[in-house]
Design a protein around this nucleic acid. Structure first.
Lengths: 128, 128
DNA sequence: ATAGCTGTTATATTATACATAGAACAACAA
DNA sequence: TTGTTGTTCTATGTATAATATAACAGCTAT
């Protein structure tokens, strides 16, 4: 799978990387048990530092999305789609509350907001 | 309207403050042309620095949500609910894409995601 | 065994963002 | 004139992000 980074983005590099991997999983480009490149190889491909890749991997590891094994490498967790109920829905609701507040202040109401969400899901199912 | 800040949160103070004001507008607790406290007064109430409040206010000003007038003070924009079409929907879609990716990786599908969104709107209409 | 690959750990440096503090300024109101 | 408004300036301390080397421990294949 193609991963790319925008060094001019305001978003932190390791966050961009983690997002891209989650996105790849959500679209089905990355599947359970699929291997990921080593920290050194991916860093080299992207032209960034090894530790930055390592930081992204460890963030995903904490979320239970990938499995890191010293000497075996990194792979997508076989239970990646399982409902791990780690209180994620509470975090999600708070983030959505912020997005909804901001949307209302920008003239975007419930119908239009739901339309954007459905559109994102549709694109995701069709693989972009 | 009551504004409060959690100094132990990972979220930056000025971001929390901006979020609370947007949230207050979305719920109707703050209405167009309503005045906001001065940077010094609000900072004093919240126990934080004047410049932190100023930073939050300027962020909202850039979003077209509030009007800042040197010597007259700060108030909610009369056009706060207008569709300013400043490309906000593009930003919204990208943020939703990230949230949806993460949700899928946590076992939350489209139905459940839409349910959370609808629930947030419902709470917002009923005023919390 | 040795060479090569894994992720990890440690130390160090640079840059940026966040939050604070105090002071002074210009615009307006009472 | 006095007081309030937001703004600007300088300064400091802390935290995070990203980089760079270097070494380490676990495993695999030659």
């Amino acid at each position: 799978m193609l991963l790319q980074i925008d060094v001019n983005s305001e978003e932190a590099l390791y966050t961009q990387l983690a997002n891209q991997i989650r996105y790849g999983i959500a679209r089905g480009y990355l599947q359970p048990d699929d291997p990921l490149p080593s920290v050194r190889n991916l860093a080299s491909e992207l032209g960034i530092n090894m530790h930055t890749v390592s930081k992204a991997y460890n963030k995903l590891k904490e979320e239970g999305i990938i499995i890191i094994n010293r000497s075996k490498g990194v792979r997508i967790s076989s239970k990646v789609f399982a409902d791990r109920k780690t209180g994620y829905e509470t975090i999600l609701e708070e983030k959505i509350r912020q997005l909804v507040s901001q949307s209302i202040c920008n003239g975007i109401g419930e119908k239009r907001f739901l339309g954007v969400v459905e559109n994102v899901f549709k694109k995701m199912r069709s693989g972009e």
